[in-house]
Amino acid sequence: MNRREHITAFLFVAPACALILLFVLWPVVNTFTTSVYQVGLTDPQYGPFCGLANYRALFDDPAFGRSAANTAVFTLAVVPLQTALALVFALWTNSPAWSRRALRVSVFLPTVLSLTVLSVLWRLLYEPASLSGTGLFNGLLAGLHLPTQPFLTSPRQALWAIVIMSVWQGAGLQMMIFLAALQQIPAERYEAARLDGAGRWHQFRHVTLPAIAPTAFFVVMVTTIFALKLFVQPFIMTRGGPEGSTMSVVQYIYEAAFFARDLGLACAAGAVFFVAVCLIAVAQRLLLRVVEDRQ
């Protein structure tokens, strides 16, 4: 009986495990093994073993440093902005009034739309003033008699234009997660705080904030990983330009593989990226533990 249960269980679990092994874990291993060989995109076989030469080439390439810096700036800007905005909207729309429900729907809508469609859309919205067609934002600026902006065509503004678009796109999902957490807080706690004479700020500081802290942490972690994977927005809106100012790590990996046709280099970049993502996730975990111990 027990043997038969084991065999049945194995048959139930095996297909899913085999697919995950083949399409998730094997590629992870392959990232590291491929990164120490010379391999061209169309080579039928791996070239010679080259040790850490791909890594050396990677760290000598200023474009990689640039893309890592861009991705870091993007992440450091998007995560706090988006989390703060999501929290504000969650607090604001945590009410049955129909105007708040309208706001909730409107903020949530972009998160379910495709990033590709929205990137194409915002590329047109950001279009600089020109004869061939001015974008909506510059049209509005001109309508208000304000100076028009180059947005995506300026190396100084492009990454920030993408940050704003990404915050607009992503805040809704986190707002929903925060809302779910807010609705779990029992009303009696606010009642008790009010009886103790706590004002609105004190209620927020001593009832709301502690109750949603675990959710906030979860939200920050997920958003960080999402921000690190930045690719679609700059790839469609700017192709990484102007002057490499919006090139992301994922686009660097993609171009190393399919434009420079150097799979060894692409996998070395992938390996560095993988380790960085894991380290950041672990660091955030540790930070949480330190904060929890303090309290």
Partner: peptide, 14 residues
């Protein structure tokens, strides 16, 4: 937590 973006090239090789 392993994002596709990290393994896209080796997955292509697979």
């Amino acid at each position: 937590i392993i994002p596709l973006e990290v393994i896209v090239i080796p997955l292509f090789l697979t």
